[in-house]
Simulated assay, not measured.
Amino acid sequence: MSNHKVLGIIGGGQLGSMLCQAASKINIKTKIYCDDKDAPAQNYSDEFIYGAYNDDDKIIEFANQVDVVTFEFENIPVPTLKKIKSVKPVYPDPNINFIIQDRSREKKFINDLGIETVSYKKISSQKDLENIDKLIPGILKTTTLGYDGKGQYIISKNNDLNKIPLNNDFILEKKITLKKEISVIITRYQNGSSATYEPIENIHKDQILDTSTIPSSVSNEITNLSKKYAKLLADKLDYIGTMCIEYFIDENDNLLVNEIAPRVHNSGHLTINAYNVSQFESHVRAVCNLEKIEPKMTSKAVMKNIIGDEIFEYRNKETNSDEFFFDYLKKESKNKRKMGHITKLLD
């Protein structure tokens, strides 16, 4: 089993920070490349390189200084990742991002495996707006570069669509009556074996994750199906590392994939305190080809995101012994920006 000693990470946000912390725990050095000179992960990495993602020379120089490369967010230009891959292994594979960066490609990939999603239609021109009655009310989403509700429009009636400039490719998704949202974190290793965490129950506010709880309150049947789908998706993508599958459960208990996040995920933060091995350590182990540790839940838990100015009140708060406060050390608090989280262990 080869042991990579220096892990290169593209992106320097809180996920990068937590990857660095997990890596240092198992004696892997980290080097971050990021286009934000204030990126908080530099507080935790062994080395930090500030540069643009399209600066080929600098990116290749970075790749030459590490053994293997991973990333903490999926919207890095695929050509950049492919350039790095010409020099060093990149996990997960950049071709996966090509599928997942585009909502219509992603949905087709999922549906082709016999896994359900909400009904949808690709909208590239005015002509595509004909015969869409059965998708209204719906949500219009840009096919690329949307997260935390960005690039999304609620469509309650057909003429709402006339107000939106169709200068992008969109997909129109049918709005469903949502009973629950869950996510499954899975790590797949280079030998093809995988390790799955128990489903996490998520509650969103203003389209941003508010709380995540384990164990989730879903049936055994849904639990088993959500893990089975996660494994099928990871295997079909030939995925290496940790990924998250977000699911909707509708009023009829249908399990629908909402989206795939090809990276460690916000809903999995509670694995740091409530499992024997966190999603971050599992990811580092997988991409660095280290031994697999089977995840075991050591406590029930709930994680709450700390958004915007809420961080100031938490910084001055005493925490109890069963609470774990994480401050992402971001330079500036912004409305709707994730500034930290707190995990509370439950009996």
Rank of each mutant, 00 (worst) to 15 (best):
N95R: 00
N95Q: 03
N95C: 04
I96R: 01
I96E: 02
I96N: 01
N97S: 13
N97A: 06
N97D: 07
F98M: 01
F98W: 02
I100R: 00
I100M: 07
D102P: 12
D102S: 14
D102F: 08
D102Q: 06
D102E: 07
R103V: 00
S104Q: 10
S104V: 06
S104T: 01
E106N: 09
K107I: 13
K107P: 14
K107C: 09
K107R: 14
K107S: 07
K108S: 15
F109N: 01
F109S: 01
F109G: 01
F109E: 01
F109P: 01
N111L: 10
N111H: 00
N111M: 12
D112R: 07
D112E: 14
D112I: 06
D112Q: 08
L113V: 02
L113S: 11
L113I: 10
G114K: 05
G114M: 11
G114V: 07
G114D: 11
I115P: 05
T117K: 04
T117Q: 04
T117C: 11
V118S: 15
Y120V: 03
Y120T: 02
Y120N: 11
K121I: 10
K121V: 13
K122S: 14
K122Q: 04
I123M: 07
I123G: 04
I123T: 10
I123P: 06
S124K: 11
S124Y: 05
S125E: 13
S125M: 07
Q126S: 11
Q126G: 00
Q126F: 05
K127E: 14
K127C: 02
K127F: 02
K127I: 14
K127H: 08
L129W: 08
E130G: 10
E130S: 13
E130V: 07
E130H: 12
N131K: 09
N131F: 03
I132V: 15
D133H: 02
D133G: 12
D133A: 10
K134W: 02
K134C: 06
K134E: 14
K134G: 00
K134I: 05
L135T: 07
L135I: 02
L135C: 06
I136E: 06
I136H: 05
I136S: 03
I136C: 08
P137C: 11
P137N: 10
P137Y: 08
G138F: 06
G138T: 04
I139S: 10
I139N: 08
I139E: 04
I139F: 06
L140R: 03
L140K: 02
K141D: 13
K141Q: 15
T142L: 09
T142A: 14
T142C: 10
T143D: 09
T143W: 00
T144G: 03
D148N: 09
D148V: 08
D148Q: 14
G149C: 13
G149V: 14
G149I: 14
G149E: 11
K150S: 13
G151H: 04
G151K: 01
G151Q: 07
Q152T: 10
Y153E: 01
I154Y: 12
I155Y: 06
I155L: 09
I155N: 05
I155K: 08
S156N: 15
S156C: 11
S156F: 10
S156D: 15
